[in-house]
Nucleic acid binder design. Structure first.
Length: 692
RNA sequence: GGGCCCAUAGCUCAAUCGGUCAGAGCCCCCGGCUCAUAACCGGGCUGUUCCUGGUUCGAACCCAGGUGGGCCUACCA
């Protein structure tokens, strides 16, 4: 029996969980759930809030309440967010706990006993009003190099030079506006260089961490003597006082990872487990999941702390990249800095779990949440392919249940069972994208099978009842295999399916045995398709309140003077097709819109929707454009008309019957499905003029 | 400035050891079907596997150089 202790990094108590955080917790939760579906292992998933440090202290001052009040409130909010996303911990603790204080002191003593602690005196800027030492990001002033005003205390974003905060001209505290004074402060450093050789071996061990991470450490830190680590902060500081150094507190990054241990201890006491089995046992495999920004803490300092303290060292440090949205950093102004709670308000957490899984591989690359692809992929793969399998086959079995014996299925079920080991390997190796790929292949095959077998046709023939049952039993058993494989990724879908099929989805092994004879429940939708409007609404809500969501048309602009009768403009069009994401003027100028005259228009017999238009941009400039307006316009009505075309649209090849044609632009038209209104300029416009 | 990673169809990505590996899904077009959530099925379209050399019987894969991205970090390697 393997014993696994898995952790995600501890979220900081100063902020709410957002969709970037969720990459990590979803990734970890999926891995944990997958491990639990394999027989010979025991898995405990531990997390906690990271509570200490200057940021929380300052917020407490600002809001006039205690730090403890704040961190309790945040812990509750974090846990609610995680629960919404089906991230389930065995225990969720806090670094502000007696247990954590105890272990922090224990590890500190270990450093002391080895003589690895030394004291240095540092000259640092001090805010006499706020009464605290200022970290670089709390000091602003004029760059000593290029004289740019308003630069932070570590480097200048104008000239790029780096300097010490004490070199700033006219420094100011961002907390109080006071002029900081130079004060001496004592700091305690721990020396980790004596463990250099240990880290050389430990970090480079096969499978310890992703290869690129190991390379990074080797090329960046381990090729030089390791610098001592400053682990103390002078009072005032929200944190634990260092026992043998009054007035000094453990730096937040010192006690944060120790929270893994403390939280485990709380869990062990809670459930009656022996703590020593989990953190003092070479039998236990500890797995940390972290983002690439905190690699240094988890792969250099942390193992040394553990080793000196006599704790079990991690077997694996799994590292993921950052989240981008539509190819860019999450942005508050663009509405892509989405809080977990905002997402959950508009969209199904299962969808995000699936999408993240479909993009998560074993490497440390960043993950892009492309909102259009998100809608597309979840709908196409999860709903259309997978869930629809249950929808289209379970109804046939509502009365009869599964066939008594599993019918001949052309080897489909056996093929589904055969990928069992591949799926387990993919999970083990954090390659969830591969899991979804395999599952989609199975779903494609199952759908094709149903189409071939045509149970709906059989259902109309007398005496074919058992055939209908056989076909549907096969389809639903294939569905069960697929959902079993996906269960760690989409646990709620698995639960819903369990109710429908009357079986559980808690063991991968189940894919090897088909269900027979058992009853099938009444079908209810297990998952809904995502409407693009939901995504738009979520993005809009995520934008800062000051910026109007839709910097809209003024009433004057909207009121067209030629309108004779008062038009009734209801909001249905906007509701059907909500506003796209904001684009910049630069985005807009990429699109070259031109006035064009339709010279010829002809019906394309091979096509249902298209008309072939030849348009003139003036002079020799002619374009052949195919437009999907055959159903709405007669060719002869179009000839001679001025229209607006997108003139720099990439040419598009289309195959009409056996001939290949190319469309060299697009005619602009309004309207949804079932209607089309071609745009025209007012009279006087000339072909070739650009629309600005 | 240094280091690391990456580059395959319009998009997202596959391709065990160098040997039918040039593929899938989405998009788009055509056709079919109607059990199913405008879902499903079949067919079609799209590639100098970034470029240039090299190694090899054979390269998307190995080597060298270049170009273009991304990340980390900085006068320290």
């Amino acid at each position: 029996m393997r014993r696994l202790l898995v952790t995600s990094a501890l979220p900081y108590a100063n902020g709410h969980i957002h969709i970037g955080h969720l990459v990590e917790y979803i990734e970890t939760d999926i891995w944990v759930r997958a491990q639990r579906m394999i027989d010979d292992r025991r898995v405990v998933y531990i997390c906690a809030d990271d509570t200490h440090g200057t940021a929380v202290m300052l917020r407490a001052r600002k809001e006039g309440r205690s730090e403890v009040e704040i961190i309790n409130e945040m812990s509750e909010a974090h846990q609610k967010d995680f629960a919404d996303f089906r991230v389930v911990f065995d225990h969720y603790g806090s670094t502000h706990s007696e247990e954590n204080k105890g272990y922090a002191r224990e590890i500190w003593r270990a450093f002391r006993q080895r003589g690895l602690v030394r004291s240095v005196e540092v000259e640092q800027l001090y805010d006499p009003v706020a009464k605290l030492f200022l970290a670089d990001r709390f000091v602003k002033g004029t760059c000593p190099n290029c004289k740019s005003p308003d630069q932070y205390g570590d480097n200048c974003d104008k000239c790029g030079s780096t300097y010490d905060a004490t070199e700033l001209i006219d420094p100011k505290s961002t907390l109080s506006d006071a002029k900081p004074e130079l004060r001496k402060a004592e700091h305690l450093l721990v020396d980790i260089e004596p463990e250099h050789a240990f880290l050389d071996v430990w970090t480079q061990a096969e499978g310890r961490m992703p290869r690129e991470t190991a390379n990074y450490l080797k090329g960046f830190f381990l090729n030089n003597p390791l610098r001592a680590w400053d682990v103390s902060r002078p009072a005032p500081y929200f944190g634990f006082e260092i026992p043998d150094a009054a007035g000094h507190h453990f730096y937040v990054w010192f006690d944060a990872p120790i929270g893994y241990i403390a939280s485990t201890k709380q869990w062990a006491d809670k459930v009656g487990e022996k703590f020593e089995d989990w953190w003092r046992s070479p039998e236990t495999e500890i797995v940390h999941v972290i983002g690439k920004d905190i690699v240094k803490f988890h792969t250099l300092f942390w193992p040394v702390m553990l080793k000196l303290g006599g704790f079990t060292l991690p077997r694996r440090v799994q590292v993921h990249g950052f989240l981008t949205v539509d190819g860019e950093k999450m942005s508050k102004s663009k509405g892509t800095f989405v809080m977990a709670s905002t997402y959950a308000k508009h969209l199904d957490p299962e969808c995000l779990r699936y999408y993240y899984a479909s993009k998560l591989g074993p490497s440390v690359s960043d993950l892009d949440l492309n909102l259009e692809e998100f809608v597309n992929r979840v709908n196409a793969e999860l709903v259309n392919k997978v869930v629809n399998l249950a929808s289209r086959s379970s109804r046939f079995l509502a009365k009869t249940g599964f066939a008594a014996t599993y019918p001949d299925d052309e080897g489909l079920f056996a093929a589904g069972a055969a990928v069992h080991d591949d799926i387990l390997d993919a999970y083990e190796n954090w390659d969830f994208a591969k899991v979804t790929r395999i599952a989609m292949e199975l779903a494609d095959r199952a759908n094709a099978y149903i189409d071939r077998a045509q149970p709906w046709a059989l259902a109309k023939q007398a005496g074919k009842e058992s055939d209908v049952q056989a076909v549907s039993s096969i389809a639903l058993n294939l569905y069960r295999q697929i959902v079993t494989y996906l269960a760690p990724i989409v646990p709620r879908l698995a639960e819903g399916s369990a109710a429908l099929l009357g079986c559980s989805f808690d063991r991968f092994d189940a894919v090897k045995t088909p269900l027979t004879s058992s009853p099938v429940g009444a079908y209810q939708h297990l998952m809904k398709r995502i409407e693009p409007a939901q995504v738009t609404a979520m993005v809009e809500e995520s934008k800062p309140a000051e910026v109007p969501a839709t910097a809209a048309l003024t009433p004057e602009a909207a009121a067209v003077p030629t309108a004779q009768t008062a038009p009734v403009d209801d909001g249905s069009a906007m509701e059907k097709e909500p506003l796209a994401a904001i684009c910049t003027i630069d985005d807009f100028t990429k699109v070259d819109l031109r006035v064009a005259r339709i010279v010829t228009a002809e019906i394309v017999p091979e096509s249902k929707k298209l008309l072939r238009l030849s348009v003139s941009l003036g002079g020799e400039h002619r374009r052949t454009v195919f437009a999907g307006i055959k159903a709405y316009y007669k060719p002869e009505d179009l000839v001679g008309r001025l229209v607006i075309i997108c003139a720099n649209l990439a040419p598009r090849q289309m195959k009409l019957g056996k001939t290949e044609v190319t469309s060299e632009g697009m005619v602009l038209a309004a309207g949804a499905a079932g209607e089309a209104f071609v745009l025209s300029p007012d009279s006087g416009a000339k072909p070739g003029q650009r629309v600005h």
